[in-house]
Design a protein around this nucleic acid. Structure first.
Length: 430
RNA sequence: GUGGCCGUAGCUCAGCUGGUAGAGCACAGGAUUGUGACUCCUGAGGUCGCGGGUUCAAGACCCGUCGGCCACCCCA
């Protein structure tokens, strides 16, 4: 019989990896909270229509990357390919956006049907924040400062860089789209197949083509910056002043357009050259018309999403990962002797009552004294706690240091041990 | 969806112009009857991704297929 494997592009995150994930998620969640953002949780499945209306009908995500299926009542459902649309739907549905500012964050799996490669899988994970109800550039600056602080706390300040652009208002963008189209159509024969296709679907995406010949052609193309209206220009200029004043360095990238339809004004990406082709770790921007598009009142909004898999890769290779991350066991309890397992469990519970923060692993399943000591060593524990025949008859326990501390090995009554353990463990961890 | 490279033990890999599978690590037991690490000995572990073909003979060659990695596309 053939074994069942995980679905392509959907990866297990194994015990060797989860401490890194927990660390990243904990640091980010604490940071978001410290800026006044509250967590929101929404379902993994939504009505298909939500994504068609928000992300855009002609985007690759909607056209060919969504996991879409009919529910048993034939309603079309979709595994969420991103979080922003879901967040807007949830916030709007529950009246969170009525005349008020909301600072929200979320995390969880997203699904896109793509060929897996480095930094990209079909189930991937994002953390993101969305802020509703603030139209000015100050909030754009705030979330960029927040992300910059996150990189700094993880020791990734040198590994990522910020790229920034403004798409202008929807009207600005429409005017520019036409001008770009006019230009590109004059040079149609020089466009590669992909760009020819995008001419019809999403011409702005031609701007960030990786084809050098296309980039060459674009040098003489009309620039989006020249099409920004007064309001858009003022918003962007003020944002840049705020970033300069706050010491955020960035690279203006007039070719940065982003793939989702709902963005306007500020767009940004934090990128790295250390992850291969998928170098975008965190990206976002302003989407002032999305709430209205989804049936709510006009509500300015800005947010970003960061890809946790990519952040994990970057953090492992370039971040400051704390020593001992993921080491759970302080004490390995060796139980050597017939019929002592029950007694060991009772003693262990007493120890846990007295010292709830201590990691205590009780050996189970028997085995020789020697093999238990080997397992104690392998567990990474600082100490072996031994209950054998001698200890049992003396009403005592033996504590043995495994990591070359001066402590050595001592046998004492369990009451005394509980008294002394906090001091002993503290001394050992220094 | 397209392209390149790759599938041999739990992991990392060797296996020559075809001749019936090996190493290191990890795991288990022992040397050392209640003391881990270092050392030494021993053991267990494989339908060589799967299916077909060529051949006296295929892990190796051919075809197909599935999977993995990387890149394109696209995106976090």
């Amino acid at each position: 019989m053939s074994t069942i494997r995980a679905v392509r592009g959907m990866n297990d995150i194994l015990p060797a990896q989860t401490p890194i994930w927990q660390r990243l998620e904990a640091v980010a969640a604490a940071l978001f909270g410290s800026y006044g953002y509250s967590e929101i949780r929404f379902p993994i499945v939504e009505q298909t229509e939500l994504f068609k209306r928000s992300i855009g009908e002609v985007t690759d995500i909607v056209e060919k990357e969504m996991y879409t299926f009919p529910d048993r009542n034939n309603e079309s459902l979709t595994l969420r390919p991103e979080g922003t649309a879901c967040c807007v739907r949830a916030a709007e549905q529950h009246g969170l956006l009525r005349n008020q500012v909301q600072r929200l964050w979320y995390q969880g799996p997203m699904f896109r049907y793509e060929r897996p490669q480095k930094g990209r899988q079909r189930q991937f994970h994002q953390m993101g924040i969305e802020c509703f109800g603030l139209a000015g550039p100050a909030i754009d600056a705030e979330i960029l400062l927040l992300t910059q602080r996150l990189w700094r706390e993880l020791g990734l300040g040198e590994a990522v860089g910020l790229e920034l652009n403004s798409l202008g208002s929807a009207v600005d963008r429409q005017r520019y789209r036409q001008a770009l189209l006019d230009y590109l159509q004059q040079h149609r024969e020089q466009l590669d197949d992909d760009s020819q296709r995008r001419l019809l679907t999403n011409p702005l995406r031609i701007l960030d083509s990786k084809n050098p010949a296309i980039q060459e052609l674009l040098v003489a193309a009309p620039s989006l910056q020249d099409f920004l209206g007064a309001e858009a220009r003022a918003h962007f200029d003020t944002l840049r002043q705020l970033l300069d004043a706050a010491g955020v360095t960035y690279r203006l990238n007039p070719r940065l357009v982003r793939g989702l339809d709902y963005y306007n004004h500020t767009v940004f990406e934090w990128t790295t050259d250390k992850l291969g082709a998928q170098g975008t770790v965190c990206a976002g921007g302003r989407y002032d018309s999305l709430v209205e598009q989804l049936g709510g009142a006009p509500t300015p909004a800005v947010g970003f999403a960061l890809g946790i898999e990519r952040l994990v890769l970057l953090y492992e290779a370039h971040g400051k990962v704390p020593d001992g991350l993921g080491e759970l066991v302080d004490i390995y309890f060796v139980v050597a002797g017939d019929n002592l397992e029950g007694q060991a469990l009772v003693v262990a519970e007493v120890l846990r009552d007295a010292l709830p923060s201590v990691g205590l692993l009780v050996h189970s399943g028997g085995g020789s004294f020697k093999s238990q000591m080997k397992k104690a060593d392998k567990s990474g524990a600082s100490f072996a706690l031994i209950l054998g025949e001698d200890e049992a008859s003396a009403g005592a326990l033996t504590l043995k240091a495994l990591r070359g501390q001066a402590f050595g090995q001592q046998t004492m009554a369990s009451d005394e041990l509980i008294q002394l353990l906090p001091t002993i463990l503290a001394a050992a961890s220094n």
